[in-house]
């Protein structure tokens, strides 16, 4: 099943590096997933996060306020 990955962030440097990490992991491991960047603050607030960037996988918040390592993202996607 295709996983739905959302990256919540208003466009700060940390959010960009999270996107890069996730993108690399998905490509390198050929994971079936869509990556969506959520930059609209109203949309972000629906997820009830206080710190960005946040990583949402299949509507579940997994990481908040920090940039994860590739290994961490891979573990979350498996």
């Amino acid at each position: 099943m295709t996983k739905v990955i959302k990256i919540l962030g208003t466009g700060c440097p940390k959010c960009k590096s999270m996107t890069n990490v996730v993108q690399e992991v998905v490509t390198a491991n050929q994971i079936d997933a869509t990556i969506e960047k959520v930059e609209d603050i109203m949309e972000i607030m629906k997820f009830n996060v206080l710190r960005t960037p946040a990583l949402v996988i299949d509507e579940e918040i997994t990481i908040k306020g920090r940039v994860p390592s590739k290994e961490e993202v891979l573990a979350l996607l498996k």
Binding site: T10, G11, C12, M45, L50
Partner: peptide, 14 residues
């Protein structure tokens, strides 16, 4: 992180 200030502000207000 200044990039968190907006979500934080809204979260507190809410």
């Amino acid at each position: 992180c200044s990039c968190s200030s907006v979500p934080l502000f809204i979260g507190f207000v809410r």
